[in-house]
């Protein structure tokens, strides 16, 4: 059996499956975003539209609708801000964690990493639900928090169904995605570099700021991409933890597909989301590549 035949025999089946159940559906969505919604169906039939006025049945109508009303772009901007805040908070929380794991004795590292991953493998909804309990009106935590506010004569404030709850949920769900690439990077640092810096007179803070942090930037970019991109498209967290005005772009997409049943417009929103995700991944990759370490 020659190498060529072998190559196709091994890579063929997964390739065909992914072409059929990933690539083609994605392409159909691209086409759908240039189509009309049907009269009765969420999408007009693609073949034989029966309307001779349309050029091959394609239209920019849904795109025009998206850009005509600022409400949609504002929603994107809002999602962007939430994702950015999530990324920064995750970085802030993840860095000490990753650094501590990387600097702990080798025999403990695997178990410490496993402890970071474990919550990530528990069901996504359970993790969101946990915060519904904690932030809920009747919870011990919420009562304690409002009692604390009361000490300063402040009115009690709701915690659940607020932007803050959404942000907490986003950070909680995505934190491991930041810890892992950071750790993978920090672990590879040569400890002799820090000894050398200390030997050459750098105090602890300088050693971190001038050696550890710059060297860890590829990990930071990777983590940022892994947090930012999924955070951008999330709909279940605003759904469960956010208030009535707490929706993000993911919720709008879900609504277009399942409730409004306007697939072309949902397709447009998905296209913009895809573009934003790919754009951000590209930027992160570009930054990481510029880093020559």
């Amino acid at each position: 059996m020659n190498a060529r035949a072998q190559k196709w025999l091994v890579s063929g089946p997964p390739l065909v499956y992914l072409l059929f159940f990933f690539a083609i559906p994605t392409l159909i969505m691209v086409v759908a975003s240039f189509r009309f919604p049907g009269d009765y169906d969420p999408l007009a039939p693609i073949f034989g539209t029966g309307n001779p006025d349309e050029v091959a049945g394609l239209t920019l109508e849904s795109y025009q609708r998206f850009f005509a009303d600022p409400i949609y772009l504002e929603l994107f901007l809002k999602s962007f801000l939430y994702a950015t805040a999530t990324t920064l908070l995750c970085l802030l929380l993840a860095y000490p964690l990753a650094l501590m794991i990387a600097r702990s004795p080798k025999r403990y590292r695997d178990i410490l990493v496993l402890l970071v991953i474990l919550p990530f493998w528990s069901n996504f909804l359970i993790r969101v639900y946990a915060w519904m309990i904690i932030l809920g009106e009747q919870s011990v935590f919420a009562k304690g928090f409002n009692g604390f506010l009361g000490l300063f004569g402040l009115d009690p404030m709701p915690l659940l169904f607020t932007p803050l709850a959404v942000l907490i949920g986003l950070v909680y769900v995505h934190l491991p995605f930041m810890v892992l690439p950071l750790y993978a990077n920090l672990e590879k640092h040569d400890p002799a570099l820090l000894d050398a810096a200390q030997d050459l007179g750098a105090p602890a803070w300088q050693r971190f700021w001038r050696i550890t942090f710059p060297l860890s930037l590829p990990g930071v970019y990777a983590g940022a991409a892994l947090v930012f991109i999924p955070a951008l498209g999330i709909f279940a967290i605003p759904d469960l933890l956010g208030g009535t005005d707490g929706i993000l772009i993911g919720n709008l997409i879900k609504q277009q597909f399942l409730e409004a049943r306007d697939w072309p417009f949902g397709g447009v929103l998905s296209m913009v989301l895809t573009a934003a995700a790919i754009g951000f991944a590209g930027i992160a990759a570009w930054f990481a590549r510029r880093q020559r370490v």
Partner: peptide
């Protein structure tokens, strides 16, 4: 499929 937001794969498979 791992890299893009999950919702995109969800909706495109729905249409498909």
């Amino acid at each position: 499929p791992i890299a893009i937001p999950e919702i995109l794969m969800g909706v495109s498979l729905l249409i498909f």
